[in-house]
Structure formats: C-alpha cells, structure tokens
Amino acid sequence: MRAVITVIGKDTIGIIAKVSNYLYENKINILDISQTIMQDLFTMIMLVDMVECSKQFDVIRNELDKMAEEISVTIKIQHEDIFNSMHRI
C-alpha cells in the first residue's frame, strides 16, 4: 500500500534525516518528497510505498508519533486513498 506522510513543525537540523532514516530501517520506500517552509513552518510531504514493510500500520503510526514528540513536530501517516477520494473523481 501507498501512504502519505506529512511532517509539519518548527524547522530544525536533521528532520528529513531522522524521518527518512526511520523509513529506511523499516523498508518503507520514498516515492516522492517535497519540502517547503510555509508560514515559518517546516512542511514536508512524502509519498511512500509500504509493501515491503513488515510492521503493522498502527505500529508505524505510533512510532512516528513518538519521533514527532522528540523533535517537536507533528507527523501524520495516512493511506493515500483518503486524498485520492477527496480530490480525484
């Protein structure tokens, strides 16, 4: 399955490194990535492929939540279908 990961928060050194390293460790492949500073907030959007990931979706979500707390940002992971269904006919 494919999911969208969004990371929003105050910009600090190593956010991308930290998140992408975690994804690497869990065999989650990054298909697309974009990053900007919107209204002073670091905003990163990633499209990822989770086919090879052996952990449950819930586990990944909880671990990303924990990481988000450590680096004071919010990280969301959502199945891509929610965006597709809302914005594509």
Partner: peptide
Amino acid sequence: MLNKNEIMETIN
C-alpha cells in the same frame, strides 16, 4: 500524483 495543496487542504 496528488499535489501539495490538495494534501494540505485535507490535513487542514
């Protein structure tokens, strides 16, 4: 591919 604004709109 979904665009950034659409993703942010949903999140918002």
